[in-house]
Simulated assay, not measured.
Amino acid sequence: MTTTVATQIRIDKEVKKEANELFDDLGLDMSSAVNIFLRQCIMHDGLPFEVERPKYSASTLSAMEEAKKISRDPNVPGYNSMAELKAALLEGD
């Protein structure tokens, strides 16, 4: 019989939000995802992936951060097709 125990961890608010959205899409909850991660750590006798510092330049990291902010800005228009994007671009002429 499996015995479970409650565990409390601190997670960055935005990381938790994004992780919950991902897990929801995968049909998982946070607890199930953490359990999968922990079991994979045990099976691999370590982390189940490489941990390394990204090798991006400061300008690339800045551009990535700017893109993330733009993608979450509700005032930035979105398009469902190239035709919609092209029409919006042509309106600006």
Rank of each mutant, 00 (worst) to 15 (best):
88 A>T: 02
32 S>Q: 12
67 A>D: 04
15 V>E: 02
80 N>K: 14
78 G>V: 03
12 D>A: 06
71 S>P: 02
52 E>K: 15
68 K>F: 11
6 A>P: 08
59 S>G: 07
27 G>H: 00
23 F>L: 04
41 C>S: 09
51 V>T: 09
84 E>N: 02
87 A>V: 02
51 V>P: 02
5 V>S: 14
56 Y>G: 02
66 E>I: 07
31 S>Q: 06
78 G>W: 00
14 E>D: 10
44 H>W: 01
93 D>V: 08
18 E>G: 03
66 E>G: 06
11 I>E: 01
57 S>P: 03
90 L>D: 13
13 K>L: 07
76 V>S: 06
33 A>F: 00
43 M>S: 11
11 I>R: 01
14 E>A: 11
36 I>K: 13
21 E>S: 06
23 F>Q: 00
54 P>Q: 09
7 T>K: 15
39 R>G: 15
23 F>W: 01
32 S>D: 04
90 L>T: 14
42 I>K: 15
82 M>G: 15
23 F>R: 01
4 T>Q: 12
52 E>Y: 11
7 T>R: 13
17 K>S: 09
51 V>R: 11
16 K>G: 04
69 K>T: 06
58 A>T: 11
57 S>K: 11
88 A>I: 00
46 G>M: 00
76 V>A: 12
4 T>S: 15
50 E>W: 02
17 K>W: 04
87 A>Q: 09
51 V>A: 12
50 E>F: 03
88 A>L: 01
17 K>A: 10
10 R>L: 11
2 T>I: 10
61 L>F: 10
16 K>S: 08
93 D>H: 07
74 P>Y: 02
18 E>K: 10
62 S>W: 06
67 A>L: 09
59 S>E: 15
29 D>F: 00
39 R>V: 13
15 V>F: 07
16 K>C: 08
1 M>P: 11
37 F>L: 13
47 L>S: 10
13 K>W: 04
35 N>F: 01
66 E>Q: 11
85 L>F: 07
63 A>K: 05
64 M>L: 14
65 E>M: 14
1 M>Y: 06
58 A>E: 12
46 G>C: 04
46 G>S: 07
7 T>H: 12
27 G>M: 03
16 K>T: 00
72 R>H: 14
47 L>C: 13
68 K>Y: 13
92 G>S: 13
63 A>C: 05
93 D>Y: 09
32 S>L: 00
24 D>H: 05
57 S>G: 12
72 R>Q: 14
86 K>C: 07
19 A>Y: 02
51 V>S: 10
61 L>N: 14
60 T>S: 08
7 T>W: 05
28 L>S: 01
87 A>F: 04
12 D>S: 01
32 S>I: 00
24 D>W: 03
20 N>A: 07
80 N>M: 10
31 S>E: 05
81 S>P: 05
85 L>A: 08
58 A>K: 14
44 H>M: 04
39 R>W: 11
49 F>M: 15
77 P>M: 02
66 E>K: 10
40 Q>F: 04
8 Q>D: 04
81 S>V: 03
18 E>M: 10
39 R>N: 15
68 K>A: 15
92 G>T: 12
74 P>I: 03
17 K>R: 15
74 P>D: 03
13 K>C: 07
72 R>L: 12
70 I>L: 10
62 S>M: 09
4 T>L: 13
6 A>M: 08
